[in-house]
């Protein structure tokens, strides 16, 4: 795991793109104390090198910190052992062959700090010290990989849990008619955030167990309506989405300026958008036609000078029910 190597690479394999870049992100979130190995066995200055060799041999470790009164004073690596063996000096004390004042990292530091030291120095392990300089653990590249994988896995499980919970939301609630209402306030001319509401609605629908097709149809219709609020209204408007197990009802309202000729507005290619709006990629005159294509029923009412109300409905078949167990929500688990 290398903190700098993959940032600038243009093409990665799928798996690399999936895990490395996200784990790089995590390296900036996780603390060293969360991934390091604790309760590390340390050598003392009074120990002889032959004792250390014996410990290496028995436990399979290849490095060991040396401490005095819990404070780190050095580290013994395989290289130090070889050096000692070549000298035939196994009765020497650890202090004679250890590497004194080794590179260390602090347990409160971010994992990325350890990665930087690994890259810069080429060492295989780093002793971890607390704020008082006492040894609190040891960290290797393997510890980091394991720690990151654990978090990545739990994050995936988190999203799965959310989906699972939401996709069964309505099951335990008894009423004559249960529904979930989402409301979003849209500002006029806010192109930077435009689409955020549709994006959130799409995510919500998928968590509630919607099929990709239903989520797509619904979010395209709402996105077009959201963009209409941004382009055409005086004061923005409200999107209200009511989700029931068997239908999604969307109500988009604003307080003006209203549409002069609703019938004409519905015609594909008809647009009143300004040149400026067209340069932004909108105003093709396809918005309402797109909505009509995506929903099962719609009604556009408008009073010039007063405002516009667009109502849309998508009916869900029993295999696509929301908030109740369905084949989609089962599949995603």
């Amino acid at each position: 795991m290398n903190a700098t190597s993959n940032r600038s690479t243009v093409v990665l394999t799928d798996q690399q793109a999936e895990s490395i870049t996200r784990s790089e992100e995590l390296a900036y979130e996780l603390r060293i104390s969360e991934v390091m190995t604790r309760n590390v066995r340390a050598a003392s200055p009074e120990m002889q090198m032959k004792d250390v060799v014996e410990i290496f041999r028995k436990t399979g470790i290849s490095g060991m910190p040396v401490t005095e009164n819990d404070h780190l004073i050095g580290i013994i690596s395989m290289e130090d052992i070889f050096h000692c063996l070549m000298e035939g000096d196994l009765n020497a004390y650890t202090t004679q062959y250890m590497t004194p004042n080794p590179y260390t990292v602090k347990d409160v530091d971010l994992v990325v700090e350890a990665l930087k030291v690994f890259v810069a120095t080429g060492v295989g392990r780093l002793p971890v010290v607390d704020t008082e300089g006492k040894l609190s653990g040891i960290i290797t590249k393997g510890d980091i990989t394991r720690g990151l994988l654990k978090v990545l896995q739990s994050k995936t499980q988190e999203e799965e849990m959310r989906r699972y919970r939401a996709s069964h939301l309505f099951e335990d609630i008894e009423s004559d008619r249960t529904s979930l209402i989402l409301r979003y306030t849209i500002k006029q001319h806010d192109f930077v955030h435009g689409g955020a509401a549709s994006s959130n609605i799409k995510r919500a629908l998928l968590r509630l167990g919607a099929s990709p097709q239903i989520a797509r149809r619904c979010s395209i219709a709402i996105y077009e309506a959201e963009i209409n609020l941004i382009i055409h209204t005086n004061n923005g408007g409200i999107i209200r989405v009511e989700i029931e197990p068997h239908q999604i009802t969307i109500d988009v309202t604003d307080d003006g300026p209203g549409i002069a000729d609703v019938e004409q507005a519905m015609k594909p290619g008809y647009s009143t958008a300004s040149e400026e709006i067209r340069e932004l990629g909108f105003g093709a005159g396809m918005g309402l036609a797109n909505i009509a294509r995506c929903v099962d029923s719609m009604k556009l009412e408008s009073v010039l000078g007063k405002g516009t109300r667009l109502r849309m409905k998508i009916n869900l078949e029993s295999k696509d029910t929301l908030g109740e167990s369905n084949p989609n929500s089962m599949e995603k688990r």
């Binding site: 994006s199 996105y223 990629g281 797109n290």
Partner: peptide, 29 residues
């Protein structure tokens, strides 16, 4: 034109466009 994209594109396509604003990504999503 993003509405043209939304009107015609089928899922899992590559979108070629000369437009660079955030709405391109929203449309894609």
């Amino acid at each position: 034109l993003m509405s043209d994209v939304l009107a015609s594109i089928q899922p899992e396509a590559v979108l070629l466009t000369g437009l660079c604003n955030p709405q391109v990504v929203r449309t894609a999503q």
